[in-house]
Design a protein around this nucleic acid. Structure first.
Lengths: 234, 234
DNA sequence: GCCGCAATTCTTGTCGACAAATAAAATACA
DNA sequence: TGTATTTTATTTGTCGACAAGAATTGCGGC
């Protein structure tokens, strides 16, 4: 409340308010700036963004539609919780989508797709070298999203993006637990996947995607079981 | 405009307006009562439901989030079109979800799940015998949704429901083209799937689900290619 | 008669305000 | 002192109104 909120977002164009709030809130949720369970007050947001409650509300409705915000009738909404007990169902879906999108990319990719995919992988690698966890997460998502785009199935793409975003929160937790120091395996696996896509080797893509998923899932699970054991031990 | 719209929806409880509009609009879109491309006027809907534009707007935002309504900035929204050119990607996703959910149902189902699944299949069969196309579509959806629920993966369930709803519009077209006279194969295939789930035979479930998908897809494709040929011929 | 520009109408995006529903606080009572 | 009840306060759901932008109509020029 110390700064002047209305000056932070000067005269925006008509129709841009919702997108502004939506994008920012979404990022803050996925980066854990707003941890799960954080209550969301509409008036507070309205003051912060210097606009009426109406566009805020619309942004919240959209976020609720994506499952990032949970809303109880007549009561304050809050940032959606991460269902730790059902994590295995998430991992199952993640693995399947890794495999399917990578297979399809091997089948349907065009040369310009590979340029994009490689660019994201380079950015990922650079972020890794400078231990920039947020950059790694963003570029990892962009990398796999680009692969899914190359597969040219909008249904898989939409679903995969949703899974990846949900995973962004888990990855953030994972990286936090390692204090942003990270293994290099992921980057090498990315390179192998790119090569397999370029070679149009569908079966190899499948195996690599599955291994990549196993790699990530195994590490994340270790974090959560460790946390769980600590909770029980005390 | 002949009846009295404000009397059709008498004093509803606070918070029920959005759901009312959302459910009804959704049904009308999926049943093709509102064909793809139909423009949606907010004031008109507000008058029809006897409420302000605010809840209408929220319902539209949610429908847009599900891809059932397309909205252009500062311009009237409209019922989403069906992308006939990318139908094969839809069929691909549908087949995969049929297989995955049926496999998972074989693994994780409990006795009470089968009761529900059987009930929906009986209702489907009854609707078929009385050539009630809308009833068939609704119960077909409920049947497969119940299988997905028995698989106990909320991510697959959400995605599958979305695919099934998108398919509801295609099925409606299909049934319309056959003037609501329908083949009995679907019902028999449903019975076989139930038996395989109960026997917990994962591989059989996979084969049956794939065959079921092929069956439906083949028939729908025939309708669309036939329409296409007519368009070209004239 | 046709095309380009201006005025108007029409629809959406945003606003401020009010009322219902719930949560919190204060009070009364055993 | 603890509990039930009333009162207050906070927060959401809905409303009517206004303004910006787009579509349409009307007008004038060629």
């Amino acid at each position: 409340m110390s700064d002047v909120p209305s000056d932070s977002f000067p005269d925006r164009k008509r129709g841009s308010g919702v997108k502004l709030v939506y994008d920012l809130l979404r990022d803050e949720i996925l980066d854990l700036t707003l941890p799960p369970g954080t209550p969301i007050d509409e008036v507070q947001l309205a003051e912060r963004f210097g606009m009426s409650r109406t566009p805020i509300r619309e942004a919240l409705v959209r976020l609720a539609g994506e499952g990032l915000v949970e809303t109880l009738p007549n009561r304050s909404s809050m940032v959606a919780n991460i269902d730790v007990l059902n994590l295995h169902t998430f991992f199952d879906a993640l693995t399947l989508m890794y495999r399917v999108t990578t297979r399809l990319a091997a089948q349907h990719h065009r040369p310009e797709d590979l340029v994009l995919i490689r660019a994201h992988q380079r950015a990922y690698d650079a972020a890794m070298r400078s231990t920039d966890a947020l950059g790694m997460i963003a570029n990892n998502r962009a990398f796999h999203a680009a692969i899914a785009e190359a597969g040219r199935n909008p249904y898989y793409l939409t679903f995969f993006l949703r899974i990846l975003d949900e995973g962004r929160r888990l990855l953030r937790m994972y990286y936090q637990s390692f204090e942003d120091r990270l293994p290099e395996e992921f980057s090498k696996e990315h390179d192998a996947i790119i090569a397999a896509i370029e070679a149009r080797d569908i079966e190899l893509c499948d195996r690599l995607a599955r291994a990549h998923a196993d790699q990530i899932i195994g590490r994340i699970q270790k974090v959560f079981t460790r946390d769980l054991r600590q909770d029980i031990a005390l």
